[in-house]
């Protein structure tokens, strides 16, 4: 397998993300790949199927800027604050364009990523019991255990075209270290055809212990060093989650014009990797 290319974020996105791709940007509250998402917006990618367990503000921004045709998710809010107003505007009023949704539970998506990483066609788990989600999502089905007869939920394995994640460190050979809340990032990268990893820094020695969560260089397509690349989310050991930004986002995102003006000055007019601070 070829090793990861260490390159610029601009090149990494240009090389690996195409219009119409299914794109998984993971990071469970922690290590959300904001800088990479902003670069995808700046490069004007369209018709994407955006996949994230918790869409968070980054998907609010990508949806509001017209990147997405479809959203696959399991919890779409601004954590502890309220709604994602751009996501709601797209679902409720088709702005800036209609947004198809495929909705799951966290348990289901976590299982589907794991099945994707494991090379299985589907995930089997005990879930979706007695609720209405299977009525609105025909990819939620069931199988019978051949040994016990128990009815279990099944959904297709997650196999995105591209996985995009942020991590603390890469070494010069392109091996990547993740620490803290590790979410589903390892599974997302292993399940995807291509992957982009942004990191806080590139170092000589990762310094992880023998059980550290490491993605080997040959599982990754491209790596770019982007300090603060997860802001306003956080990078354990580098900077905290900016909870005040999450609160400040609410009034910005409520109004279409305010949102577009904010995106123009904080994302579109900025250089790659410059961040929104």
């Amino acid at each position: 397998m070829p090793r990861a290319v260490i390159t610029s974020l601009k090149e990494a996105v240009a090389e690996n993300v195409r219009d119409g791709d299914s794109l998984s940007l993971e990071g469970f509250t922690h290590l959300i790949p904001y800088a990479a998402g902003h670069e995808i917006i700046r490069q004007g990618r369209r018709d994407l199927t955006l996949i994230r367990m918790t869409p968070d503000i980054i998907f609010d921004q990508m949806i509001g800027m017209g990147c997405a045709r479809k959203l696959v998710f399991s919890w779409g809010g601004n954590p502890g604050v309220g709604s994602l107003h751009r996501m709601r505007d797209a679902i409720e009023r088709d702005w800036p364009q209609p947004l198809e949704i495929e909705e799951h539970s966290h348990g289901a998506m976590a299982n589907a990523y794991e099945a994707g990483a494991a090379g299985l066609p589907c995930a089997v788990f005990r879930g979706y019991i007695g609720n209405d989600l299977p009525k609105v999502n025909d990819r939620i089905r069931s199988v019978e255990c051949p040994f016990t007869g128990e009815k279990l939920a099944a959904i297709p394995a997650m196999r995105p075209d591209v996985a995009v994640i942020h991590a603390q460190k890469a070494d010069r050979r392109g091996n990547v270290l993740l620490e803290g809340i590790i979410g589903v990032q390892k599974e997302a990268v292993l399940a995807a055809s291509r992957s982009i990893v942004t990191v806080e820094e590139i170092v000589d020695d990762l310094g992880g212990g023998p059980n550290a969560v490491i993605l080997p260089s040959w599982t990754i397509s491209a790596i770019a060093a982007v300090p603060n690349g997860a802001f306003p989310s956080y990078a354990h050991g580098y900077y905290p989650r900016d909870n005040s930004f999450y609160k400040a986002w609410d009034p910005i995102a409520r109004d279409r014009e305010t949102f577009r003006a904010w995106m123009d000055s904080h994302v579109m007019q900025r250089k790659t990797g410059e961040g929104v601070q």
Binding site: F73, L84, S105, H106, G107, R126, I129, N131
Partner: peptide, 10 residues
């Protein structure tokens, strides 16, 4: 539109 399921169904 509310946030959705999260971990609650399981």
């Amino acid at each position: 539109r509310l946030p959705g399921a999260g971990g609650a169904p399981e």
